[in-house]
């Protein structure tokens, strides 16, 4: 019961924050709301007993990536004139229509499982030990492929930011 109450609180705050992200005029507010949205989703993960996932979400997305986003936004430091006024464009109308369609489809798809019987969790679900075991046995190949992809991205970033010799910059 109490879990359901908390779920609705965090779910509502996640949705509201997401709406602020796309509707705020000031990009700093969008970024701040995105942090709030990520935190709300992390709280929902905690309610689902996925503690490790929740903390990684906070650590990586809310704690590290969003700091960089804010860093860039602060460097730009757009003034009110540069941001422009609120306008209704074809692109925005299409976007609203597509979001509505997506929400409808998802509602139809997921309410099918609404009355499915509850399944009890295995002991140790969501702990570091269990997630680690699954990652290194059942999902070893995808896990290693993702690490290779990340390594390639890191090397790419280093190559892109390195100064060429005699570039004079």
């Amino acid at each position: 019961m109490i879990q359901a109450i908390f779920f609705y609180i965090f779910a509502a705050s996640a949705v509201v924050m997401a709406l602020v992200v796309v509707s705020a005029r000031n990009p700093i507010y969008s970024a701040a709301a995105l942090i709030g949205c990520l935190l709300s989703v992390a709280c929902i993960f905690v309610l689902q007993s996925a503690h490790l996932l929740a903390l990684l979400q906070v650590l990586v997305y809310a704690g590290a990536i969003m700091v960089l986003v804010l860093f860039v936004l602060m460097l730009l430091n757009l003034s009110r004139d540069e941001l422009g006024r609120r306008r209704i464009t074809v692109r925005r109308v299409t976007g609203v229509y597509l979001v509505g369609a997506l929400v409808t489809l998802m509602t139809i798809r997921f309410t099918k499982h609404l009355w499915a019987p509850a399944v009890s969790l295995e002991p140790g679900f969501g702990t570091i030990e269990e997630v680690g075991k699954i990652l290194y046995t059942k999902y070893l190949l995808p896990f290693e492929m993702v690490s290779l992809l990340l390594l390639a991205a890191i090397i790419g970033a280093v190559v892109l930011t390195r100064k060429e010799k005699g570039d004079g910059r």
Partner: peptide, 25 residues
């Protein structure tokens, strides 16, 4: 006594910077 105690400290303390960043901005 969290199963993910160490990560909890890192995750939450990494949020502390927002007070400084947003306060500065």
């Amino acid at each position: 006594d969290l199963n993910v105690g160490l990560l909890f400290i890192f995750a939450i303390s990494s949020l502390g910077v927002y007070g400084i960043v947003l306060g500065g901005w």
